[in-house]
Every structure is written in C-alpha cells, then in structure tokens.
C-alpha cells in the first residue's frame, strides 16, 4: 500500500515534470530570498539584537517574548513610544489612500470612458504621475509643501488668499494630509487605468437595454458599471491595502530627505520600524513589530478573501 502510494506520487512528478522544471527557478529564488529570511526574521524577533550583538546575528541572546512585550505592552520602552501614533496614522493613511485612489480613479475613468478627440493622449497624460518614481514624489511634494517657499502655500495664501497665513504642512496634524495627498496623486492613475479597461469590457447592450428602460445615468452606474467592475475594484482594494500599509519611500524622502522624523502625525509603521531598526539599532524589536504587522495583514487579507468569496457565491 505504502509502496503503491509512493509509486503514484513518483508517477505524478514524472507526469508534471515539465511544470516542476518551469517553477524550479522561482521556487529556489523564493526559498533563498523569501522563505529563509522570513524564518530568520521571525527568529530574530525573539533575540536581543542590537548594535552590540549584531555581529553574532542569530547567536544573539534569546529573550523569548521580551521584544513583543516591549513593542506592545511596556510603555517605557523606546520602540513603544510613538508606535501607536504610527499605527493610527497607518490606518488613516491606508484607508484614505486606498479608497481615495479608487474614488478618483473611478471618477476619471467614467469621464475618460466617453467618445472624444484625443482620448488616448489624454489617458496617457493622466498616467504620468504613476511613472514618477516614489522617491521623486516624496522629494517633489516635500518641496511643494514647504511653508515659506512651497508652491501650495503660495497658491493658497499669496494668490488665492484662501487662508490668512501660511500654514505648516510638514509639522503638526496637517502632516497626515501632506503624506496622503502625494500618495493618492502617485497611485490613482493606475486604478483609473484598470477601471477604464474594466469599463470597456462591459457589453454595450446592457447600457442600451437600460436606456430603453429609461434608467438615469446614476442608476446605470450603480446597477451595471459598479457591480460588473467588482473583480477590478476588489483587487485594487486588496493590493491597495497591502501596498499602502507597507508604503515607505514617499514618506521617508519627504522628511529630512531620507533621514528625518516625520513627526507625530506623519510617522507610519514602516518609517517607525525602519527608524527603530537602523537608527536606534534595535533590530530585535523591529523584527517583532514587523511580525505583528505581518500577522495583522494576513488576518486582514483572509477576512477580505472570506467576504469576497461570500459575495461571489451570492451573486451566483
């Protein structure tokens, strides 16, 4: 019996030899650069890994859950300070950016999805921000948000006189908007592109039938466009959530040109962990925070999948 089973799986391997050869390089790469480092990273989160013990690396003292205690409970540990601010900011940032990109992308996709001259060219122009590298986005908007010399304050105060005095954008509670708006600016064209493609694949007959029934444009959107685009926007939400939680370049380049502290309202989990790991040499705690974040993300993605599947079954 056991022999037969073995033979069977050998047979299968032979049958799928082609497929296994094809995925082999990817699997090898993922093992060396994904799986092993993740396991090491998780192990690191149990070590007291600082600048004194970095040489020993995985031989550093094993401290069990001390890092987790420092990250979550011990209010006096340096990494715990500011971490909850960063978590709050990350939640606001991720949700606003994800749905902001989707909303703006949908709006412009609906506008571009008409017949007019130069449609392809205008769509290309809309896509330009998406090609600007994120570190440039951070630098550029960091410059534009400057209080005295930034163009945003010049337009708001000096030209339009909308505000009585020039506000600080990179200090204080405004900071959260100073990081959200550039991120939306950078990423919304991509949502627009995918939604536009989705709209173009919706059969025209549906709209014609709705026209005959006398449906309004609003109604047509909610009854036809929006539901039929569900595969696109649900993927956009999923990847938006993941990407934005792990967003790093824009914020790090906007403050102190890659070495500054974004402040109470600008710090994200990624910048916080990066600072704690590489500027305060607290690698163990950084790893612990990363692991917690990763587990949270896995949970969120699974919840998303659960609802996605459920909704899919309902529509069938």
């Amino acid at each position: 019996m056991r022999f037969k089973q073995l033979q069977w799986s050998w047979h299968k391997i032979k049958k799928y030899r082609f497929a296994y050869i094809f995925i082999l390089p990817t699997v090898l790469g993922m093992l060396t650069l994904h799986l092993i480092p993740i396991v090491q990273g998780i192990y690191m989160s149990f070590l007291n890994l600082s600048q004194f013990t970095l040489d020993k690396y995985l031989g550093a003292p094993f401290v069990w859950f001390k890092n987790y205690y420092d990250v979550l409970i011990n209010t006096r540990s340096p990494i715990r300070i500011g971490l909850f601010d960063a978590a709050r900011n990350t939640v606001i940032y991720t949700v606003v950016v994800t749905f902001g990109t989707l909303l703006l992308g949908m709006l412009v996709a609906l506008m571009v999805n008409r017949e007019f001259r130069g449609k392809g060219f205008i769509r290309t122009l809309f896509l330009f921000p998406w090609v600007v590298p994120t570190y440039v986005t951070g630098l550029l908007w960091g410059f534009m948000w400057q209080r005295g010399v930034g163009i945003i304050n010049i337009i708001l105060v000096d030209i339009l006189h909308l505000l009585p005095s020039k506000p600080f954008w990179l200090i204080g509670p405004n900071t959260i908007w100073a990081i959200i708006i550039p991120t939306i600016w950078r990423y919304w064209p991509f949502s627009m592109l995918l939604l536009l493609a989705g709209m173009q694949s919706i059969p025209e007959e549906l709209y014609e039938a709705a026209d005959i029934d006398g449906a309004s444009g609003w109604r047509k959107f909610w009854e036809i466009t929006f539901p039929l685009l569900r595969p696109v926007w649900s993927i956009l939400i999923l990847f938006g959530l993941i990407f934005n939680v792990y967003s790093f370049n824009i914020v790090i380049m906007m403050f102190g040109f890659g070495a500054g502290f974004p402040g109470e309202w600008g710090d994200l989990l990624m910048t916080n962990i990066f600072r704690n790991s590489f500027m305060q040499w607290n690698f163990g705690a950084g790893a612990a925070a990363s692991v917690i974040l990763m587990l949270t993300m896995i949970l969120i993605v699974n919840v998303w999948f659960y609802f996605y599947k459920k909704a899919e079954e309902e529509t069938r």
């Binding site: 299968k12 699997v27 650069l33 994904h34 792990y246 990624m270 790991s277 690698f283 974040l293």
Partner: peptide, 26 residues
Amino acid sequence: FPGSKLFSMAILATQMVPGIMFLIPI
C-alpha cells in the same frame, strides 16, 4: 500539479511580508 495551490498561495503571501523584514536577514 501537486503543490500548485501551495505555490500560488506562497506567491501571494510574499506580497504580505513587510520588505523591512527581509532586509537584515538578507
């Protein structure tokens, strides 16, 4: 093939790991 499901799950899972976690081990 056997393991194809695991493989596609692994591919999605790599996207869920914070890049910073790879940095020191790598």
